[in-house]
Design a protein around this nucleic acid. Sequence first.
DNA 1: ACTCAGGTTAATGTATACATGAAAGGCCGA
DNA 2: TCGGCCTTTCATGTATACATTAACCTGAGT
Lengths: 255, 255
Amino acid sequence: MADASATNGCDAEPAGTQSSRAVLELRNLIVGGHIPPEERLTEVQLSERLGMSRTPIRAAIQQLRAEGLLEPLPGGGFHARAFGPAEIAEAIELRGMIEGFAARLLAERGIAPEDFARLGALVAEMDALFEAEDFGADQFVAYGGLNARFHAALASATGSALVVEEARRANARPFAAASALVRVRGGGAASRDHLLPAQDQHRAVLEAIRERQGARAEAIMREHARHSERNLMKALRAKAPLTGVAGAGLIRRPA
Amino acid sequence: MADASATNGCDAEPAGTQSSRAVLELRNLIVGGHIPPEERLTEVQLSERLGMSRTPIRAAIQQLRAEGLLEPLPGGGFHARAFGPAEIAEAIELRGMIEGFAARLLAERGIAPEDFARLGALVAEMDALFEAEDFGADQFVAYGGLNARFHAALASATGSALVVEEARRANARPFAAASALVRVRGGGAASRDHLLPAQDQHRAVLEAIRERQGARAEAIMREHARHSERNLMKALRAKAPLTGVAGAGLIRRPA
DNA sequence: ACTCAGGTTAATGTATACATGAAAGGCCGA
DNA sequence: TCGGCCTTTCATGTATACATTAACCTGAGT
């Protein structure tokens, strides 16, 4: 069922309007590193660059400001926001708190059987990936997609619009997304081994939800987020330029 | 230092532009109950009602949508969002989680002495209110303001833009704000007694931060939010029409 | 009576012209 | 040479005209 929304996992940009195009393209330009944080952006400049009038550009800027990707500049104009290690860590911790809240709600209030089955099926699909002969790029991409769907399904199973919205927002931040960190490590057997503990946590949180263990479910999801945080920070400390990660150019490396 | 921003506790609406006026007036109309959730809103209609063109109205609508106050309607147009008891409880719980995170960060990383002093001064000011001969409307208003400043100062002491932003958002939701619930009870001696436990939690969280007790600080702020949640829910169960609370018309009472 | 097609209406989306404000730069005078 | 004022420029804010789309209603034909 969740095939149409596989691209971004949310439907916040509705139609084929110029405004939605502006949001999409501008966001891609920023996280793709084509607009470095040093570059000053103005409305007219962007309207020429994207081939549309200022009106949809203004809407896009307002939205990306709300997402925290753009920041106003003192003398007018904007720039892409740069993120230091502390901010990244906080964003990931925050995501863990939201998703921990979702897991606790599911454990305390109970989960609909079909939602539980859907989550279990996603875990099983990820399990199957680990059975493959060798764990290559294809498996990483597939795991990332399944992982994102698992996290989104967890939030939406609560039935709470607030939780869904906040989980979406927490995952929209660069680097904080659950799936964005999967591919931090280059790939290969070593990377596979780093994914196994995370997958075990997926299984554990479902067990905790089933057994109505709210505090445990919350703690697992918090630690689950910290797991990806550790992975990212380890990769950041290495000199390698973080290939394959969206928004790598926005990271303010520690001096 | 914190006098200019005393009106709303945040500076998200910068200048005296039509757009900022539109956001302010429209938000007041909604939470003031002048725009019930049943009423359908359109851009042209609002532009006539507020005496400005559609351009600033569009910006305001986009912002209030992001705040969760407005919801698009299927056939075009919007309506003020109505909140059920579950959504209100979740919003308050979420606020407790964010503020708990802030308190834990302060305990773990340490707090700047001047920030700690500022928080202590606010608590002392609130303490002084309880010493008054009788606890009337003036004291309630003063307590609400001090309380809002305490919560805002707690978040901003972390120095994390992310925490500040999320705390602001959590407090911006109707009913979820820390200060909004202070005046739920009518006033008088009985209401005063309901405020004392909350004030004790203010003192306790400062002690926990000072003693570097992160888990305790977080737990206190979570429970602190639940305290106000209990107060609101009790008031909701009573038949009384919730005088003095902003956005009372947005509550979907349990049948 | 029901259905389908056509038009009409009412909403948002878009472009553009103009207003306004602030910041930077140059010029003149001391 | 330095400082202050004026001018210019560039950015966003605002209004408005027009485009577009979708829903609804009306009418006629079966």
